[in-house]
Nucleic acid binder design. Structure first.
Lengths: 302, 302
DNA sequence: TTCCATTCGTGCAGATTACGCACGAGTTCA
DNA sequence: TGAACTCGTGCGTAATCTGCACGAATGGAA
């Protein structure tokens, strides 16, 4: 009758399978099997009725699990809140962000974070997929685009803006386009995810109306960093967030084609958002990471 | 953050010492120390402030323990109730009774109980001391005398009555007393606990008034079974519950001196009582033991 | 004051437990 | 029918826990 035992039993009920729980907890299915068997031995009746391939809670099992579920959660919450009150924040912080954000924004400031909060263990899931915060036990996520909807708390980290860039070599070879409209006839390196249309948006400085330009070209890549590499190598024109091209523009390895235009892939009002599961309290480890990120990027526009 | 850990922490708060908890849980004090240290490591702050010899919860510790206390109890209760609902009762049943009751009444029927409920482990504390049911974690107690007072549930097992007996050898040597009053001049083997007066009570059959006889003699023993042995050996006259002398009377190894009188040590309205801690539910293992005892002794008068 | 008993903490060796892997029986889906 | 998956069980290893011994510190008794 240990807490971990009860938690696995609850997970089994929720996921409906020993194997699924095993994958989630990163241990062998046999362990889950044994844990449940032991708990059943302890309470004296079967919690789950299992045929070789399907699984369902028994009547008594259902009752028992319903009873202990809230209690276990409360106990967990009590522990979390206690940890939150600890003078120095600690624990494991699971966060996710796009590969490019991790590479370009997170990595440079991580050493400072580790120095400031040595007792926080970081687990960073760099992924361009929109993971399920709850299912994967993620404490904090960074998402780009329009303000996300859903059952979590959203906080704006910074506004993002895009630039249309190309390498000087490429421009020398093909000439520099005078107006965004000319991009239709150029090689535009495009992002290969649904929603990232092949229509690029532009809005002249001071103007209120935007116009879109259909773009095409030989290259479609599903990774922003690779798109930047392709642009650097003179493979074409790319639409990239300032975040990724700031340094290239300063060094001259990439050139901003339309400094007088605001550019966007889909919508102009995009930003970087911080997402975290809605709970009655916010663990201190998450709080300090949010503050840390805002301290570095909160005032900037990238 | 396991349940056992939390329970230990709560016990430490309640008992105010690692060593005391260690004794209660029957493990080494160092283990308790390590468990608490680990929990403190986990929540990130000190739960108890300890000088080498004294111990007190810290502020945060107090808060945390107050929070988890009821939760842990609830979870325990949920487990107990689940076990109670198990089809076949199981678990460890701790019970206490006087040495003589255990010897004479419990032992003869135990094999049958074990056969009927093989999954119940029995722990029998044979003791003439009135143990603290709660502190010693006792599920069921058998007590003799007048109806006990206190914060527990009391259920009458059977009425008890006493007989004044002596061995035929003794009677042959000294002559058989014709009336209880003559006992004052005899060797009466007396019980050596406070409250068990040296005044024996008598009431003639059909009479309403009782009278008492002051008794004396060379032998005072603190154990009912030893008193019976002494009586068998002809050391004198003894006042013993029927429970203990039934077989001797049948076999003739002891004789009932006053079959026409009701006898008592202190009060006539004594009985054997079953006591169990008052809880909202009654574990099945306790329930079946109560039923089992009543099945064997409930209708009898001993 | 001195001595003794008792407190909690830690290092160390042994024992208990938990874990993953391999394998088997049985079921679902293609 | 076979491939892929389910849960359960041995088995050997690895991690964990436990008890003992010892030390430092404290409070009460003589």
């Amino acid at each position: 009758m240990e807490l971990s035992t009860l938690k696995t039993a609850l997970l089994v009920r929720d996921l409906g399978s020993f194997a699924a729980v095993a994958r989630l907890l990163e241990l062998d299915a046999s362990s889950v099997s044994r844990v449940i068997a032991q708990l059943e031995q302890d309470v004296g009746f079967r919690l789950f009725q299992r045929s070789t391939r399907s699984l369902a809670p028994t009547g008594e099992g259902e009752l028992y699990l319903n009873r202990i579920g809230p209690l276990v959660e409360e106990l967990e919450a009590a522990g979390d809140e206690a940890r939150m009150n600890a003078v120095s924040p600690r624990g494991t912080l699971r966060m996710t962000a796009s590969i490019s954000f991790v590479q370009e924004c997170l990595m440079p400031i991580l050493p400072e974070f580790r120095t400031r909060y040595p007792e926080i263990d970081l687990e960073i899931l760099a992924s361009d997929a929109n993971l399920d915060l709850r299912a994967d036990g993620i404490d904090l996520a960074v998402r780009f685009g329009q303000m996300p909807q859903g059952d979590w708390i959203v906080s704006k980290l910074m506004t993002t803006s895009y630039r249309v860039v190309a390498s000087p070599v490429y421009l020398e070879r093909t000439g520099r386009p005078a107006h965004p409209g000319e991009l239709s006839e150029r090689d535009c390196i495009r992002f290969a995810i649904p929603g990232f249309k092949t229509l690029w948006q532009f809005r002249e400085k001071g103007a209120t109306d935007a116009f879109s330009v259909p773009v095409g070209g030989a290259t479609v890549i599903s990774n922003a960093l690779s798109i930047r590499s392709a642009a650097r190598l003179g493979m074409g024109v790319a639409l990239l967030p300032i975040m990724l091209v700031q340094r290239d523009l300063e060094r001259g390895t990439l050139a901003d084609l339309f400094p007088d235009h605001a550019c966007a892939a889909a919508s102009f009002d995009t930003a970087a958002w911080l997402l975290y599961p809605s709970r009655s309290y916010l663990p201190r480890k998450v709080r300090v990471m949010i503050d840390f990120l805002k301290e570095h990027y909160g005032r900037s526009e990238v």
